[in-house]
Design a protein around this nucleic acid. Structure first.
Length: 576
RNA sequence: GGACCUGUGGUGCAGUUUGGAGUGCACGCCGGCCUGUCAAGCCGGAGGUCGCGGGUUCAAAUCCCGUCAGGUCCGCCA
């Protein structure tokens, strides 16, 4: 007989009478004297109660094989809290497969141990229901994504991990070459250039569940290494890509969530401009209101000097009049930290607005700002005046601070943000800075003004957002040398530099590049949102801490001196 | 690079504002009792560098300075 006949959590009343062999960990032990004890045996499917004659040698987390008979529990002893609660395993022979030291923290979802401790003993942390659920959800998401892409005729092609460093974008992780001393590989930030080469290579529809690496500061939803569903389509435009990606993401979400019918079938769209004006961010969380309201015109001729600014916006927090003065001061400090010169707050009372600055404003101004914001007694109004980008940024962050629900609440609100600007600003030399990468196609309606008014040119780039998280982004690519040349010259990239940086791609494009467009989105983030987790660390088996260390393995570690010598690498010690 | 929060037996917390004996709660651990429990119960016990270093003080978990680790966020992430 094999070690195991059934999984612990699967036994039901219908199994009564069966002789079974179960394997798992001793989750709990309840002794009732020498000859009766209950052992809760746990595996990834759940827990089942085993009735044993003496359990004194069994300790928490011992690995057991229990052979016994499934029986209905005696009248009145069923446990409705357990899926297996109507049965128990009796007449048990218990075999201790492995003893176990007491775990450093309880293996239960009931309490949450410190995260460093969890990471240090990740193999114990992973035994918990929550983590098993998350790992299995992730596996199903990967499978569903792959099958959605395959069904649409996409072909998975693997691209190299050791690639040439290109100076754009994030900081590269680099790997020294032993055979070419002094030269380095970079680990890929994304397969961007390779997938465009695959388009030239006639692949037509490419996808890859690809590991990407970026040496930038970590966050709750950012790790050094992360997984992207990367895709590119030949003879396709932005619409084709958005349709394919929407189908894959919606299909996947519906395949794995508890209530598939609650997942919207269509992904709504919002322009970048709308998102910035109404939500102050390019990844709006549309699950709640608190939208930003335009007030610039209200204060066009105001006596209140601070509001004689290029932009004034406000938001209304219903019922926010309750906020204490110290909380308002804290919000003001926060707003200043985010770059605002100040924050104007107004409590809406029955008789009017209560605010330290109300007396500097005319009755007309107070009246129109109230009606514009829809102020009701008991509300709090928050106003910021500054350059437009600052106002959006600060109020956008305040909005999240005051209203953002946990990521698991309010359902899944997917959103396409479209018509991103091609350039995000000007550098010191007055040259435009690309918002995406330099192969992004300008919006055809705006391309004429590219040289005269670059900052007003939209691009054919689009982001997918869910519940305020940027899931991923993509664009239609430039495939014609003339257009690529125009963008490069705007960016001040001469032919020599272009050749040095992307020569192989430009060379490839000389040999017949199909029009193409693509997308890439973060699988870790999608899984986290689907799992209702605020941090992608909860859906990664072995993540790193915010400072990029792994408490389990101790990575990163100093390199062996002989190895360094072989690579021709010398370490400069940190300043002492 | 910056702001804020956290660090107290194995675990999760309280104690820190207003300095006065390592004081408390729950879990776990060890031993004993217990034949229907299921977060079992009862009795007993062990277990502490209050993150670390310095300072103030008669006296520091508590106040001050520094530092380390972790987290959240801003910057950064084409």
């Amino acid at each position: 007989m094999s070690l195991r006949s059934d999984y612990c959590g699967t036994l039901r009343a219908g199994d009564a009478g069966r002789r079974v062999s179960l394997c798992g960990w001793a989750a709990r032990r309840r002794e009732h004297g020498e000859h009766l004890a209950f052992v809760d045996l746990r595996d990834h499917t759940g827990i089942v109660q085993c009735v044993v004659d003496g359990a004194h040698d069994i300790r928490s987390e011992f690995v057991l094989r229990v052979t016994g008979t499934v029986q209905p529990r005696p009248e009145g002893t069923a446990n409705p809290a357990l899926p297996t609660g109507e049965v128990e395993v009796t007449d048990c022979a218990v075999e201790i497969l492995s003893a176990a030291a007491p775990p450093p923290f309880p293996i239960t979802d009931r309490t949450e141990a410190d995260e460093v401790l969890r990471l240090q003993y990740r193999y114990l942390d992973l035994r918990r229901d929550r983590m098993q659920r998350n790992l299995r959800l992730r596996s199903r998401v990967n499978a569903a994504l792959r099958s959605a892409m395959e069904e649409q005729g996409f072909v998975e092609v693997e691209t190299p991990m050791l690639v040439a460093s290109t100076p754009e974008g994030a900081r590269d992780f680099i790997v020294p070459s032993r055979l070419h001393r002094g030269s380095f590989y970079a680990l890929p930030q994304s397969p961007q250039l390779f997938k465009q080469l695959l388009m030239v290579g006639g692949t037509d529809r490419y996808y890859q569940v690809a590991r990407c690496l970026r040496d930038e500061d970590l966050r709750g939803n950012r790790q050094f290494e992360f997984m992207q569903l990367d895709a590119e389509m030949a003879f396709a435009d932005a619409e084709d890509v958005m349709a394919s990606i929407s189908a894959a993401v919606i299909g996947t979400a519906r395949a794995v969530v508890a209530e598939p019918e609650a997942v919207p079938t269509v992904v709504p769209r919002m322009t970048w401009h709308d998102a910035m004006e109404r939500y102050g961010t390019d990844k709006p969380d549309v699950r709640f209101g608190l939208e930003l309201v335009e007030l610039t015109d209200v204060f066009a001729g105001t006596e209140f000097k601070a509001f004689l600014a290029p932009c004034v916006k406000g938001l209304r927090l219903p019922g926010g009049g309750e906020l204490s003065r110290s909380r308002l001061d804290a919000l003001t400090d926060q707003a200043k930290g985010w770059g605002a010169k100040g924050l104007v707050w107004m409590r809406v009372g029955e008789g009017g607005l209560d605010s330290p600055v109300a007396r500097f404003m005319s009755d007309d101004e107070l009246k129109s700002l109230s009606s514009r914001l829809g102020a009701e007694p008991g509300d709090l109004l928050l106003l910021v005046a500054d350059e437009r980008p600052v106002v959006r940024h600060v109020l956008g962050l305040l909005r999240l601070e005051l209203g953002r629900p946990p990521v698991s609440e309010g359902g899944l609100h997917f959103l396409w943000v479209t018509e991103f600007p091609l350039f995000e600003g000007l550098d010191e030399d007055g040259r435009p800075i690309p918002a995406h990468h330099p192969f992004t196609m300008p919006h055809p309606e705006d391309a004429d003004g590219m040289e005269s008014d670059p900052l007003s040119v939209r691009s054919l780039a689009y982001d997918m957002v869910v519940n305020g998280w940027e899931l991923g982004s993509g664009s239609e690519r430039i495939h014609r040398p003339e257009m690529q040349q125009r963008v490069f010259s705007l960016l001040g990239i001469g032919p020599e530099e272009a050749k040095a940086r992307f020569g192989f791609l430009l060379e490839a494009f000389r040999y017949g590049a199909p029009p193409h467009a693509g997308f890439a989105f973060g699988v870790d983030r999608l899984v986290a949102v689907l799992a209702g987790e605020e941090s992608i660390r909860e859906v990664i088996a072995f993540p790193k801490t915010q400072s990029g260390t792994d408490p389990l393995t101790g990575a990163p570690t100093p390199a062996d001196g002989r190895l360094l010598a072989e690579l021709g690498v010398r370490v400069v010690p940190p300043d002492s």
